[in-house]
């Protein structure tokens, strides 16, 4: 072991330089060419940064599309899921309560149209998206609160729906809400 100790120590020092200095520096240098210089893409509205393209936000007012429930209440300095098991009675009661609240605040929406994503928390607690169904079910409320034509809001949702050949369709909630404010 003794004859290996010194080489092990020296090799560790050399590799620290390579893996912890040179490698991240190369990635960092490459990332300078990426959108927003490798700091994550941001979204601006009326001259100020209102958020990150990829970090979900909390919306509670009726005139905005709401994001999914979040276990960390959209605190983007942390991130977590609820980690509730599928059979946990306390959790199922919470889902039921979210459904009741949603139906109360969106009168006229039949229960069968409420997608489960609006009742369940995402993995990160910062999910920036909704499915098209998750947005569609909120159109009537948003249109009413903004005194807009529902068809106009519906068209805006359609315009912000990202389709892809592989994987699910989705709507970026913050982008959609910024577009609403800019109408």
């Amino acid at each position: 072991m003794k004859q290996h100790l010194l080489p092990a120590f020296r090799l560790t020092l050399v590799l620290l330089v390579i893996c912890c200095l040179i490698y991240p520096a190369l990635v960092w240098a490459g990332a300078q060419l990426a959108p927003n210089g490798g700091q994550g893409e941001t979204i601006s509205h009326r001259g100020r940064v209102v958020g990150y393209d990829n970090v979900g936000q909390k919306f509670t007012r009726p005139e905005y599309f709401w994001s999914r429930p979040s276990a960390v209440d959209y605190n983007s300095a942390g991130s977590a899921g609820s980690n509730k098991g599928p059979s946990n009675p306390e959790y199922l009661a919470m889902v039921q309560a979210r459904l009741d609240t949603f139906l109360l605040q969106n009168p006229g929406v039949p229960k069968a149209q409420v997608p489960a994503e609006l009742l369940t928390a995402s993995g990160s607690g910062l999910d920036p998206h909704l499915s098209p169904a998750g947005a569609a079910v909120q159109v009537a409320r948003v249109a009413r609160a903004r005194q807009l034509d529902a068809a106009k809001v519906q068209a805006l949702v359609a315009q912000h729906t990202q389709h892809s050949l592989l994987g699910p369709d989705r709507v970026n909630v913050l982008r959609l809400n910024v577009a609403l404010d800019e109408l």
Binding site: G81, E117, G123, G167, P168, R170
Partner: peptide, 18 residues
């Protein structure tokens, strides 16, 4: 509960992955 669960179980999952 009678809601629309067409996209599957989404507790703890992200919309963009499904």
């Amino acid at each position: 509960l009678g809601v629309n669960q067409g996209l599957g179980a989404l507790e703890g999952k992200e919309t963009r992955f499904g």
